[in-house]
Design a protein around this nucleic acid. Structure first.
Lengths: 219, 219
DNA sequence: TTCCTTACTGAGTGACGATTCATTCATTCC
DNA sequence: GGAATGAATGAATCGTCACTCAGTAAGGAA
């Protein structure tokens, strides 16, 4: 009676229910906020009983954690894969930025959870920070440093700060996209941000085979 | 019996109590998060009875609102005043950025409330966005546009996006400063951010009586 | 058919915490 | 002095949920 399309054997429906609860929770958290969401709401949205939620998750908080971990792991893996295909650090950063906004832009509910709900308490922030978030910033950091070694980016800028500036700019694009209820595409903003950023951090010395980023070379 | 040191006349203690509650709430919210903070905690921290809180605020939520409004109004007024003293749009932005991080860096509890607690629900975010936040972004926007008209900033960048990029970068500096428990000064980060940002958005055409920002003119 | 296991159910519980309001008491005014 | 005022108090209320657990159902084995 539960879900109409059910072909898995009841044995391993396990996976299906778990995923359904996560999907439902993402939607519910996004709409009401984590603290205003009742576990009963999530259960109803996932079309399971209240108690079932606790067969898959230890607590309401663990649901939020799981949403974060799962998506973060996917995102980082995808980013790692994507930048292996190119060698120019600028292109690497462009791809990461694009992926970042593409993933959030593709699922508004998920974006809300990431941009809003996950930031709602220092306790969460620190826990998440320790987890995948730091790893993501680290990825930006390492790529930036790589660019500095390659002579593409200015060396007088701390790579950690460079990474934060880029992340902050992207993050704000995402947050603003959520708040503004207009209907524009998020992903293309990555290009604009990267244009300004790369322009801002490029090593001016015209050696290194660097063609002036996007801006105006001689005009 | 309540507070040992009580010298204000009961008449105008009004102002004092209200301010005390706001200060206490900022501390409590910063330490426990808004949703985990009990009104009783705030009352105890402010050295008043639970009920007294409701003589000054309609609800717990109104306390959070008040913290935001009051500080935002102060910040915007200060920023407006500060940029009237100079005419170069780049210098104006530098001052706003500096003020931004200086204010947050001066009061960690306030910073936590602004960077973390206020972001914790779309409901809040939208309410706040409508209030002072949009005005602040508008200030950045207008100043940026002014710079474009003056030929200091590239014209091929939407001013709204320029404002968001700058805000996002500063915002991330603040958030990271909170999460990282190291003890560095926040305000100086404004210079670094501004350096990258101005470099990234400067209009390359060396006309307009603009001496090339910090970067490298012909080198 | 009966028994067992596994997945699920949802009514109930216990704790919690925002808000209220009857009461106290210092101050002011006549 | 003594009435009136209103700021301040804090115990009591009352709704709200996160979580539990006794029970149901369905499949499979014997």
């Amino acid at each position: 009676m539960a879900s109409p399309a059910k072909r898995v054997t009841s044995r391993n429906s396990s996976t299906g229910k778990r995923a359904a609860i996560l999907r439902a929770a993402t939607r519910v958290f996004a709409r009401n906020g984590y603290f205003n969401s009742k576990v009963a709401d999530i259960a109803r949205a996932a079309d399971v009983a209240d108690g079932t939620v606790y067969l898959y998750f230890k607590s309401k908080e663990e649901i939020l954690h799981s949403i974060f971990h799962q998506n973060m792991a996917e995102a980082i893996a995808a980013a790692r894969k994507l930048i292996k295909e190119v060698s120019d650090p600028r292109e690497k950063l462009r791809r990461i930025a694009s992926l970042h906004l593409q993933r959030l832009g593709a699922d508004r509910d998920l974006a809300v959870v990431f941009q809003v709900e996950l930031r709602g308490s220092t306790k969460f922030m620190e826990a998440f920070s320790a987890a995948g978030f730091a790893e993501y910033l680290g990825l930006l950091h390492d790529t930036f440093e790589e660019g500095q070694r390659a002579g593409v980016f200015r060396k007088d800028l701390n790579a950690t700060i460079g990474a934060k500036i880029l992340f902050g700019a992207l993050d704000e694009m995402a947050t603003n996209w959520i708040i503004s209820h207009r209907n524009y595409k998020l992903e293309p903003m990555a290009d604009v941000v990267m244009d300004v950023f790369l322009n801002g951090v490029s090593d001016g010395t015209p050696a290194s085979g660097v063609q002036p980023a996007g801006g105006m070379p001689a005009k």
